[in-house]
Design a binder for these strands. Structure first.
Lengths: 333, 333
DNA sequence: CGGGCGCTTTACAACGTTGTATCAACGATG
DNA sequence: CATCGTTGATACAACGTTGTAAAGCGCCCG
C-alpha cells in the first residue's frame, strides 16, 4: 500500500528522487540513495503497475490467444510462453477463443487498445487479416500457419515438409494404403499438412485415394476416434494413418483397438505435436516433434522486437522439428 | 486511441457527461445521451482500463496460481476458471509456480499489491499461511486441500471420502493386495487420499502393507511409471493400485504393460481427476471424477463475494465427485 | 414570489507514476 | 572572474478516468 509519496516522506526527499532510485537513475547522492533504499525496505514499497503503465503508455502485459487450454499442445505451449515472457518481465494474459471467430475478435477488441503491449496469436477460425481491422496498431505475432502475403510476424515449422517426412516414414515401413485424419476446410495448417501428405505419396508412386482422407472439424480425441471409425467401416480400410495432431491420433488408436485392429501391426499411426501424452500412451505414439520451446522463445522475442521497433519489416521464423519414432510404427506389418 | 476527451469534444458535452453515459448514469438528457452514443460509435471509444482501475482502485484482474499447465487437470481447470471469470468481467492472469515455494511467493509478491483484485490458488509446495504474510489484504480462494484452521476461503472435494470410495471399488473387485501411488511428505491432498485408502482397507479387513504405499514427489506420468516399476520389482507385487492422479495412473499403466503385466486382469488401476486423457487411454481409466466446472464456478463466485465483502467469515465449499468406472478395473481377475 | 427540491451538467481534484523543465551548487575552463 | 558543464534535486504537468461538490435550471409548494 505504500506509495512513492510515503517513501519520500520517510526518506526526507522528493517523490521524484525516490522514483529515480527505483528506476536506477545514476545521479543520486550516495547518502540519499542509501536513505531511500532503507525507506523502500521498511515500507515494503511495490510500484503500482497500473499507474506506471498509464504514465509510460506500456502495460507490461501480452495476450496469448489460443483456441483451448485443454488441448495439451496448447497447454504445453502456454507454459513455455509464460516462462519465456517472464524473462522479459512480461505478464501473460491467456485468452481462450474456443475456436470461434467471435471469441478471437472480442478478446482482442476489448483488451487490444489499452491493456496489452502485444499479442501472440495461435489462430484457428480467425483469418489473420482480421487483425488489421480489430487490433489496429497492436503488435501481433502469429503462430502456426501463415499466409506469406500478410505483413505480420510469424513463427512456425515447415508444415508441408514435416507432414511429408511423417508420411514418408509410413511409406518406408511398407504401408501402401495410408490415410490422413485432420483435413479441414478453413485451417491453413490442415491444408499444408495435407499437401505434405500428397507429396510423400507422389514421391512413393502411391495413388491418393480421396476416401482415405478424413475430415476432422475439431482436433480432439473424439474427432480422431470418429474418423478412424469411418475409415475402418469402408470397403478397403487403410493400413496406416497420419493424424494431424496427437489428440486425433490418440482417438484413432482407441477406435482401432476397440474394433480389434492392432496397432501397429494392422495399423501404423503417426501423430503430430509430440505431446507427453503420446509418449506414454499404449502403444506410444510416433509423432512429428516441433521444438515447442524454440517456438515460444521465438514468439516472445519477435514480439519484443516489434514492440521496440514497430516499423521493421515482418519476419517469418522457421523453427526446427524432428520425427519421433515410437511403438505405434515400430515392428508389425 | 480515442479518449473520453475526444468523444466529449465531438458530442459537444463535458468529459464527465460522456463518462456518465458510458457508466450508465441515469440522469442524462435523452438528446445528449443520443449525441454521446453516436460519438462513441464514430470514435470507436474503448475505455482505458489502466486509468479506470487506477481511479477506481480495482484492476479487473484475478490471478490463477497453479503448479503447471502441462498437467491436464490444471489445464482443464484453468480453462473453466477462464470461462467462469469472463462472466464476471474478470480477466485471468495465469501464473505457473512450477511447484517451488519461491515461485508461488514471488508471483504473489509482485502482482499482489496492485495488479490483481484477488487470487485463486492451487497450492502445492506453498503453505497456506504464507499468504497472510505475502499478500496481505488480498482476497484469496484456495483450491484443493485445506487446513480448516486457516481463515481462508476454500473449494474442494472430500478427498478422504473420494479415496475411500475408489479403494472400496477395488476391494469389491476382489483385489487384496491394493497399492497406492502418490504419497508425499508435504502435500495435504496426498495425506487425505492416503487416509481414505487406509480407511477403505480397514473397512474391508485388509492389512495395510507399508511396502505397497509408493511415494511420488511429482505427480507426472514419469513418477507413476517409476513407482509402478518399484512395486512390481518387490517380492509380492500388488494386484491393484490406486493412483492419486490420472497422470500417475497413466505412467503406472505404461510401466505395467512394458513388463507384461496386463491391465486390468493382472493389475486393476484407478486414477484421480477424470482427465480426458484417461478416458481415451488404452485401457481407459477408472477414476475419481471431481466436478471441475463446479469447482471453477465456486472458486470465482467465492472470490467475487470476498472482494465485495472482505470481512465475511471464510467459507469452505464442498463440491461433488463421482467414481467413473472404465476398462482399467472392468473384467479381469 | 421566494425557498427548496429534483434534474442535469460541469469544473475540479485525485488515483500513482514519470518526463520535462528548472534550479542550485560545484568545479573546471578560458 | 565570468562562463560553462556536470551533478543532484525538485516542482509541475500529464497519462485517462471517475467521485465530489457545486452550480444552473425549472418546477412545486408554502
Amino acid at each position: 500500500m505504500a506509495t512513492l509519496k510515503d517513501v519520500a516522506a520517510l526518506a526526507g526527499v522528493s517523490v521524484k528522487t525516490v522514483s529515480n532510485v527505483v528506476n536506477g537513475y545514476a545521479f543520486v547522492k550516495p547518502e540519499n540513495r542509501r536513505r531511500v533504499e532503507e525507506a523502500l525496505l521498511t515500507t515494503g514499497y511495490r510500484p503500482n503497475l497500473g499507474a506506471r503503465n498509464l504514465r509510460r503508455g506500456r502495460t507490461g502485459f501480452v495476450a496469448l490467444v489460443l483456441p483451448e487450454l485443454v488441448v495439451p499442445y496448447f497447454a504445453e505451449l502456454a507454459g513455455l510462453v509464460l516462462g519465456a515472457a517472464q524473462e522479459h518481465e512480461w505478464n501473460v494474459l491467456i485468452e481462450q477463443t474456443l475456436g470461434t471467430r467471435e471469441g478471437e475478435r472480442d478478446t482482442l477488441a476489448s483488451l487490444g487498445p489499452h491493456m496489452i503491449d502485444g499479442a501472440i496469436v495461435s489462430p484457428e477460425a480467425l483469418e489473420a487479416r482480421d487483425f488489421g481491422e480489430l487490433a489496429p496498431g497492436i503488435p501481433v505475432v502469429m503462430l502456426g500457419e501463415h499466409s506469406v502475403d500478410l505483413p505480420i510476424d510469424h513463427v512456425g515449422i515447415d508444415n508441408v515438409e514435416a507432414a511429408r517426412v511423417a508420411v514418408a516414414h509410413l511409406v518406408a515401413l511398407g504401408r501402401t494404403r495410408i490415410a490422413a485424419i485432420g483435413a479441414h476446410p478453413h485451417r491453413g495448417t490442415a491444408a499444408q499438412r495435407l499437401a505434405g501428405y500428397r507429396i510423400a505419396l507422389a514421391e512413393a508412386g502411391l495413388p491418393v485415394h480421396d476416401e482415405l482422407v478424413a475430415t476432422a472439424l475439431n482436433y480432439h480425441r473424439r474427432d480422431g476416434a470418429e474418423a478412424m471409425a469411418r475409415l475402418l467401416a469402408a470397403d478397403s480400410p487403410p493400413d496406416a494413418v497420419f493424424c494431424f495432431n496427437d489428440l486425433l491420433a490418440v482417438g484413432a488408436v482407441r477406435a482401432a483397438v476397440e474394433r480389434g485392429v492392432r496397432v501397429p501391426s494392422d495399423m501404423a499411426v503417426v501423430g503430430f505435436d509430440n505431446t507427453e501424452e503420446g509418449a506414454y500412451s499404449v502403444p506410444s505414439l510416433t509423432t512429428v516433434a516441433p521444438d515447442k520451446a524454440a517456438i515460444a522463445r521465438a514468439a516472445v522475442d519477435l514480439l519484443r522486437r516489434r514492440v521496440e521497433e514497430p516499423e521493421r519489416p515482418p519476419e517469418h521464423v522457421r523453427t526446427p522439428f524432428s520425427l519421433e519414432i515410437r511403438e505405434s510404427t515400430r515392428g508389425g506389418a
